[in-house]
Amino acid sequence: MTDAVSVPPRPDRLARALFRFRQSRLSVIGAVMVAVVLLLAVFGPMIAPYPQDIAGAVSTAERFQPPSLAHPLGTNELGQDVLSLTLGGTRVSVLAGFGVVLIGAAIGTLVGAVAGYVGGWTDEALMRLTDLTLTIPGLILAMAIAAALGPGFQNMVLAISLSWWPGYARLVRGEVLAAREEVYVTAARALGAGPGRILFRHVLPNCVSPIIVKMSLDMGFAILTVAGLGFIGIGVRPPTPEWGTLLSTSRAYMPDYWWTAMGPGLAMFIAVFGFNLLGDGLRDSLDPKGRR
């Protein structure tokens, strides 16, 4: 009689993944940076020194004040505190990035899972649609959709999401193609489980790790894409602060009033860099080949 292979329980696997994650200083730094960005996204408007500026207040007497104790990042052409606008824009940019990644991942996961598990002409049709979408540059497609839907937060998130899903579809399809040949899938099928139950209860839960890693890596790029649309005037419109919109406005006053771009530019750098470091750490920690 053959002995069963001992499989570490899930808490033990998670503990090992956490241990590997903590071994990388850059991953820990990325996690701290992301935590700071998320905290500022939640509490930023509350701790802003001039919350009325976030709501669109104008103070022409204070316009273009250089960085000082009263205004650590100076003021812009309307006399608004740049630090307050940057803190207010953190919530908009981070929420938009999360929305893009979540919607894109949901659509792509569904398309890739169905294509990989069903196969045949369904797989062929869905993958050709995915390839067709990938032939169009994501930013160009998002610009076209956003221009058709009109400006606004929800339309911007939807426009970018509709160009974001193909990467998840191809990733999940590959994972499902490999997982559907595993023994546990054959056993579930022999016990009478239907295709839907096998796919969503057995196959997809074993494909979660690469999806989480890709989502964490995509957050930075999603924030940059949101800022890109705001920079060219298709995204969120003033007076709602958003990093790309703030940068677009400040470029007309460069380099004389350089501090108007320093706040949103630095915030964007910290957010993107932090999410990239976090994604690299999660990839190394959750990689099945790295388990010992």
Rank of each mutant, 00 (worst) to 15 (best):
G265N: 01
L266Q: 02
W258T: 01
W258D: 02
D256R: 06
T240A: 10
I234K: 12
S250D: 00
G274Y: 01
G274V: 05
G274A: 01
K214R: 15
N276V: 10
V226G: 06
S216A: 15
G233A: 11
A252W: 00
A227D: 08
P238E: 09
I212F: 15
T240R: 10
L229F: 07
M215L: 13
N276F: 08
C207A: 15
W258P: 03
G244Q: 07
W243F: 04
S248R: 03
L217N: 09
A222M: 07
I211F: 08
W259P: 08
F275M: 06
A261P: 03
F221D: 09
A222I: 10
D256F: 06
Y257S: 07
E242R: 09
V236S: 09
M215G: 15
T245A: 05
F231Q: 02
I270K: 01
P210V: 13
W258Q: 02
S216C: 12
G230L: 10
G230F: 11
A271R: 01
F269V: 14
G220Y: 05
V208G: 11
Y253P: 10
F275V: 03
G263L: 00
G220A: 08
N206R: 15
F269L: 13
I223Q: 08
W259Q: 08
S216V: 11
R251I: 12
D256A: 09
V272H: 02
G233L: 12
M262T: 10
A271I: 06
M268N: 02
G230T: 13
G220S: 11
W243M: 03
E242I: 11
P264M: 00
I223T: 08
I232Y: 02
A271H: 00
I211A: 11
D256H: 10
R237A: 12
S209K: 13
A222T: 11
P264S: 00
Y257D: 05
Y257R: 02
P238H: 05
D256Y: 03
M215P: 15
L246E: 01
D218Y: 11
A222V: 07
I232R: 01
P210Y: 05
I212Y: 14
S248Q: 05
P210F: 07
L217Y: 05
G265V: 00
S250E: 00
P264R: 00
F221C: 08
T240L: 06
L224E: 08
S209W: 14
T245E: 10
M268T: 10
T225V: 13
L246S: 01
F273S: 05
S250T: 00
L229H: 09
E242Y: 03
T225I: 11
I232L: 04
T249D: 07
M215E: 13
I212A: 15
W243G: 06
R251P: 08
T225E: 08
P255E: 03
V208P: 13
I232V: 14
P238V: 02
V236C: 10
M219G: 11
V236G: 11
G220K: 09
G220C: 08
I234P: 13
A227W: 01
V236L: 07
I234Y: 14
F275K: 03
R251Q: 05
W258F: 09
